[in-house]
């Protein structure tokens, strides 16, 4: 009887020791987690700071280009200035305003069955790509997604839970603004068997608003290229 009691107490003590050990172990891991949070916060504030610096540099470039135009008064100046205006509109370097549409894409709010693949019900990079392509085919003159202006080299890629556009991570809801004929663009998106029907099949929340006036921001990235060689060729000529 006495011996049995002894066993019980050993068992109890070891149980307590086990719990304490495990808690200790988890505690240490928690501290590491907090370290990760701290690092992440630091990174986030650095990213914010860098974005602010971007916002300063881009308008500076625009001002410098205007100065350059102002200095040019030669025989070719007026023709070049006209070309410059078209080129900057077409390239995405100017803020534009006009009629158009605003398309909003949100993840599905349809309650999913457990067997369903949740991947089917969220907005993907491909969905945005399709909507944008449809808008272009319908004559869009300028397009932006969550404030990121689409330029010739813009990618729309998947990056974990976010979508990366002009290398910037964007999260839903995705608001696509396009300048062009609102009627044509809306019609193209909503036609039978079109992209709206496809997305709504998966419950993606899709809405189109026709607007008499909207503005689309300028591209905020750099034009510098690393592989196009003409750039070097003409600086070499100038020297």
């Amino acid at each position: 009887m006495k011996r049995k009691n002894f066993y019980w107490s050993v068992a109890l003590v070891s149980l307590v020791i086990g719990v304490i050990l495990a808690l200790q172990f988890r505690m240490t891991r928690d501290i590491q987690h907090n370290e990760a949070i701290r690092r992440t916060q630091e990174l986030a504030s650095q990213v914010d700071q860098l974005k602010k610096e971007h916002d300063v540099l881009q308008p500076q470039l625009t001002r410098m280009r205007e100065q350059l135009e102002g200095l040019s008064t030669g025989p070719l100046a007026s023709q070049m200035k006209a070309e410059m205006e078209l080129a900057t509109i077409f390239s995405g370097l100017t803020e534009l305003t006009g009629r158009g549409v605003e398309v909003t894409l949100k993840d599905s709010n349809v309650s999913q069955k457990l067997t369903d693949n949740p991947n089917l019900y969220i907005v993907h990079d491909e969905d945005i790509l399709k909507v944008v392509n449809e808008l272009k085919a319908a004559g869009a003159e300028a397009i932006a997604i969550n404030g990121q202006r689409l330029v010739a080299g813009t990618e729309i890629s998947c990056s974990g839970p976010a979508v990366r556009i002009n290398k910037k991570a964007l999260v839903p809801p995705f608001v696509i603004t396009a300048i062009g004929s609102p009627e044509t663009m809306e019609g193209a998106l909503k036609m039978r068997g079109g992209v709206a029907e496809y997305l709504q099949f998966f419950g993606i929340q899709f809405s189109v608003k026709k607007l008499e006036q909207l503005t689309i921001p300028a591209y905020s990235g750099s034009l510098k290229t690393d592989y196009i060689i003409e750039a070097d060729a003409d600086t070499a000529l100038a020297q």
Binding site: A77, E83, A87, S91, V151, L223, T225, A231, T235
Partner: peptide, 15 residues
Amino acid sequence: DEALEKELDKIKRFA
């Protein structure tokens, strides 16, 4: 004029 032309060319290549 030359400087403006160079800048214009750069924008045109990008666009």
